[in-house]
């Protein structure tokens, strides 16, 4: 045991600092608390006792280097033989192979049976992945439920819309974008889907499902913030950069006389990230 009075005083001082900070913490707490002060006081208190304890070990304790032999982990031949005997003698497993086999099968069957409650954790996907809440005649409304009118949107601008009745619906979230009509280069089969330069696409990225919230007005592209998938609005939201493998599904819309929009059906294809039976259409 070493005697080093100066170090002893230092360590005692450190422990005292811990005690003081602890009490101060209590005072700060009673006075209402403040995160930065609390963190600092707690940090100092812990650091002081930590330093003290380590210094004690390093400076005041005699902890010499010691050497010891390692023993191999393997059991001795005797012990191993005893183990083997204890395991198999009275059970006679080796003589009743059929029973052992059937026992294993029984446990496997039980295991399958016990999985039943786990299966209740989730419904089967069904047709949900293939449809949204958009129907023919669904009016386009904003998040507050009010219908959007043509003219509400400046050119080269974008707004998020939903089917009337379910504003905020997660799988039906749609982007309504207004572009100069003469710049649109849609598939001829979808020429009627974008009246007067107003075009609607699903807002759910086809890569990993994030809302495609960024719109670059200068080149009329939509960008998903999660992994930078970039979609060309003028060309049917075709992916032009990034990891998305298919375009954003397009919603067919019609402009009514009163200036509001309605959908002409559900999206052109299932929305959101692609999945294995996307095109084969089975309910799964």
């Amino acid at each position: 045991m070493r005697n080093r009075p100066r170090i002893e005083w230092l360590i005692a001082g450190l422990f005292g600092l811990t005690a003081a900070c602890g009490l101060l913490l209590l005072v700060v707490y009673i006075l209402g608390g403040q995160t930065q002060v609390e963190g600092l006081l707690l940090g100092v208190a812990l650091a002081a006792i930590g330093l003290g304890v380590v210094l004690w070990a390093q400076e005041l304790m005699d902890t010499p280097i010691v050497v010891e032999e390692r023993h191999p982990a393997t059991s001795s031949a005797e012990e191993a033989a005893e183990f083997q005997a204890a395991l198999t003698e009275e059970a006679g497993f080796t003589r009743r192979r059929l029973l052992v086999g059937m026992l294993v099968a029984a446990f496997a069957g039980l295991g399958a049976a016990l999985a039943i409650p786990a299966l209740s954790l989730g419904p089967a996907p069904g047709r949900e992945q293939f449809t949204t809440s958009w129907r023919k005649g669904s009016r386009l409304v904003l998040g507050d439920g009010m219908p959007i009118h043509a003219g509400d949107l400046p050119i080269d601008s974008v707004v998020t819309v939903f089917p009337d009745g379910v504003p905020g619906s997660a799988d039906s979230q749609t982007l309504l974008i207004r572009v100069p009509p003469d710049l649109l280069r849609l598939d001829p089969a979808r020429a009627a889907w974008a009246p007067e330069g107003y075009v609607a696409y699903s807002k759910i990225c086809t890569h990993a499902g994030c809302p495609v919230g960024l719109f670059r007005a200068t080149d009329r592209v939509l960008i998903c913030p999660c992994h930078q998938s970039t979609f060309d609005v003028l060309r049917g939201a075709a992916p032009i950069f990034g990891p998305a493998g298919r375009p954003l599904p397009q919603l067919p819309i019609r402009l009514l006389e009163d200036g509001t929009f309605v959908a002409d059906g559900d999206f052109s294809e299932p929305v959101g990230p692609s999945f294995w039976n996307l095109t084969s259409g089975d309910g799964g």
Partner: peptide, 13 residues
Amino acid sequence: IGPGAMPAFDTRQ
């Protein structure tokens, strides 16, 4: 005004 790449927002948005 929607400067640069930023779209403009009308009073109704």
